[in-house]
Design a protein around this nucleic acid. Structure first.
Lengths: 140, 140, 140, 140
DNA sequence: GTGGTCTAGACCACA
DNA sequence: GTGGTCTAGACCACG
């Protein structure tokens, strides 16, 4: 239940990204039913309208289809399009961070160092490629 | 002129990061005068109130000091604190991207691949260090 | 099987128009039995309640009569009243389209051009009377 | 002020079509400001949220752009895309009517007769190509 | 003043 | 029960 009402990113978009991640991860598979709007709203302690808007966006994205009286379902190629969507989202954040770093005249290697620190929140920089679990981040 | 209305991050915060980047990069050095609010507002095609708010934030952050009738100046240790600030901003974006990727069950190496793609927007991997900004916008 | 969920016009009304068309076309003649509610529901991949409601409407319209335990039958002057009904339905859509076009300040001839394009979906104007349905959906 | 709350087509979509028509007709030209959301809501005796949703759709269509604090404006190629949109809307209605007519086994010429009756609500069929003003239609 | 989001609660159409 | 729409009224960010 990862919604942060104090984030700059609207709640409905947090839900969009969350569900997109779940579909990309295969938690919900094509044809499978998603949580009902009202049900998810109860879970997230959020107004049904907000979830409704998130589902509307997901439908526009072609990730889900809704059928009146039945519920919402993952679309046929919903999984692959969710993966593409998640990749773009990740890439956008990375690109944004890189641009910020460059604007502050950080060197390429400095930026990569920071990235590695983000990959392995606790361990030293010499550690191998495996990451310990990342803390839950919450922006505002 | 790196302001993007239609971004989720408020314009005044974009300006804060922009100036912080310039100070971290040494474009403005401790003791040096910053652009006037009105002038910067014209440059960025932005309302002076918005720049005003950005300068407030920067002052709160201890990065700049305002002197009545003279304008705003970079604070004494402004450069180092700007560098620290920029680093955290970059790290925060990276961490956010990584978390998003993990939520979509991407592998560590997949995430690193995306990061490398963000580092080198178009060309092959043999040509490092070109830094044109990759287009990727995620909002509306 | 001409039901389109995702249309603004309710499914039961689509069914009403469908049946009215079949009666007007003489597929079902006065006195003849209509398909059973359950059977039609299976055909249209639709909830029996929905078909039930459509039959109610048709009965209200005087187009069909229901006889307990026997099913629904085309009423005595059902065919002519179906023809009148279909004509008004067609006329209503045309009038609506014309009004939309005029609101967009289309000329009379422009509107007639569009109508001809609708009459002959793909081919040139020399080949009349092919009646494949043109794809054009307007909802979500 | 042409909103009909009892129509099958949602109010926000009626507003979309109305504005699209106005833009297509050149009443609002590219770059020009549209009525504010709140103002239009007052005019139409409708909740601001409803107008908001209409404007959101129009923005998705690329017909308008919104700028926070400034208002909504017709997009650069908004006029041409509005014309295309209006044409599709008109064509969709005509195609729908034609399909309905054909389902009722009307002849091509019968359908054309009905269309001409819709074009000239009052006059006889022999009248020339000029139409008297069409009555305001309101469906439900 | 503008648009953007959210809540609370209502009614409808459909299954 | 589901989703779809609408209202009333609130707060925020921006100009």
């Amino acid at each position: 239940m990862p919604v942060d009402p104090n984030s700059h990113v609207p709640i409905y978009e947090q839900i969009v990204e969350h569900i997109r991640g779940l579909v990309a991860a295969g938690v919900y598979r094509p044809g499978e039913a998603l949580p009902s709007i009202r049900g998810l709203a109860l879970d997230l302690v959020v107004n049904p309208n907000t979830v409704q808007r998130a589902y509307q966006e997901l439908q526009r994205e072609g990730l889900i289809v809704k059928r009146k009286g039945l519920g919402a379902f993952v679309a046929q190629q919903g999984d692959t399009s969710a993966q593409r969507g998640s990749e773009s989202a990740v890439l956008a954040r990375f690109a944004d961070g890189i641009q910020t770093g460059r604007a502050a005249s950080m060197s390429q290697s400095h930026i990569m160092t920071i990235f590695n620190r983000a990959l392995r929140p606790v361990a030293g920089e010499s550690a191998p490629d495996q990451a310990t679990s990342p803390e839950e981040r919450e922006d505002s």
